[in-house]
Amino acid sequence: MKALILFGVLLISGAATYLIRLSFIALEGRMNLPMWFRSALPYVPAAMLTALIAPDLLMRDGALAVSIDNPRLLAGIVAIVIARVTKSAMWTIVGGMAVLLILMKVMA
């Protein structure tokens, strides 16, 4: 029974997400969005990614952890450098994860 409820919640959530995204696509030709809104749209993906990643890098055990003994923060900084140098998502992920795994073993 719980699995059926969970499956229903997932289906409803997926449908709601799909409809919200579709609304922007479907209304594009019919509605004239303000220029300030259109100029802000390219920044949405970077803002969303930052909002998802920053808490994981900066928080540890529910407290702000901006120090050299935070392996996630150090690996994140290395990943930023790799991304800047290589401009490759694959190398950024591989390098950041490798540094994180090494630091977690060393600092454990």
Score class of each variant (00 low, 15 high):
Ile68Pro: 00
Ala46His: 06
Asp61Glu: 15
Arg84Trp: 13
Ala46Thr: 11
Val78His: 00
Ala40Asp: 04
Leu11Ala: 10
Ala108Ser: 14
Ile77Cys: 05
Ala75Phe: 01
Ala98Ser: 11
Leu100Asn: 02
Thr17Phe: 13
Ala65Val: 01
Leu57Glu: 02
Pro71Trp: 06
Met35Cys: 04
Lys105Leu: 14
Ala40Tyr: 10
Met31Ile: 15
Ala46Pro: 01
Gly95Tyr: 01
Leu103Lys: 03
Ile93Glu: 04
Arg30Ile: 08
Leu101Val: 13
Ala16Arg: 11
Phe24Leu: 12
Met104Glu: 14
Val81Cys: 08
Asp56Trp: 14
Val85Trp: 12
Val106Met: 13
Pro45Met: 00
Ile80Lys: 00
Val85Ile: 15
Val99Gln: 02
Leu58Phe: 10
Tyr43Asp: 04
Val99Tyr: 03
Ala98Lys: 00
Val44Arg: 06
Ile53Ser: 11
Thr86Ala: 05
Glu28His: 14
Ile20Asp: 06
Trp91Asp: 02
Val85Thr: 11
Pro71Leu: 01
Ile80Arg: 01
Arg21Leu: 09
Lys105Ile: 11
Ala89Thr: 05
Ile12Tyr: 12
Ser67Cys: 05
Gly96Cys: 03
Met35Asp: 10
Ala75Cys: 03
Thr17Gln: 07
Ala40Val: 03
Ala108Thr: 14
Asp56His: 15
Arg84Cys: 02
Arg30Met: 07
Thr50Trp: 10
Leu22Arg: 13
Pro42His: 10
Leu6Phe: 09
Ala98His: 00
Pro71Phe: 05
Leu101Tyr: 11
Arg30Asn: 12
Ala47Asp: 00
Ile77Ala: 13
Arg30Thr: 09
Gly8Cys: 12
Ile20Ser: 06
Tyr18Gly: 01
Asp61Lys: 15
Ser88Met: 06
Met31Gly: 01
Ala40Thr: 04
Met31Pro: 03
Leu33Trp: 14
Ile82Thr: 05
Leu33Ala: 12
Ile12Val: 14
Gly62Tyr: 07
Ala51Thr: 08
